[in-house]
């Protein structure tokens, strides 16, 4: 796995993630992220072939809840962070398979 991010990749990622990009902080951010990636690379050296994945660290189980309607939905409130909500529908650029 490559452990090196360049500035262009950082800029592209900030666009994809919709996070603000500060050019004057880019070298600092880049160095911090590359440091994290180096740590991730170090993990790859560990032999895990015979280790089962650990999804949950505790030996506990999910409790089940009764089949009851307990939620009242305020769709206007829930739609506050949607860019385009009209007539009860969320609108996105046309997607047809």
């Amino acid at each position: 796995m490559s452990t090196h991010l360049d500035e262009k990749t950082l800029r592209d990622m900030s666009v994809l993630a919709a996070l603000p990009y500060e050019p004057n902080q880019s070298m600092e951010t880049l160095a911090a992220l590359n440091e994290v990636l180096e740590l991730v690379s170090a993990l790859e050296a560990v032999e895990v072939d015979n280790v089962p994945p650990l999804a949950h660290p505790l030996e506990r189980f999910q409790s089940l809840t009764p089949d009851q309607v307990t939620e009242t939905v305020d769709s206007e409130a829930l739609s506050q962070n949607a860019p385009n909500f009209e007539d009860g529908l969320y609108f996105v650029p046309r997607v047809i398979e």
Binding site: E71, V73, L78, Y90
Partner: peptide, 23 residues
């Protein structure tokens, strides 16, 4: 079922759009 698999919102069919989708 009356309610959804992972929430307490209703599963009734034919209600107003997005009136039964909770957080």
């Amino acid at each position: 079922t009356q309610s959804k698999i992972f929430s307490g919102a209703s599963t009734a069919f034919g209600e107003a759009p997005n009136s039964q989708a909770c957080a």
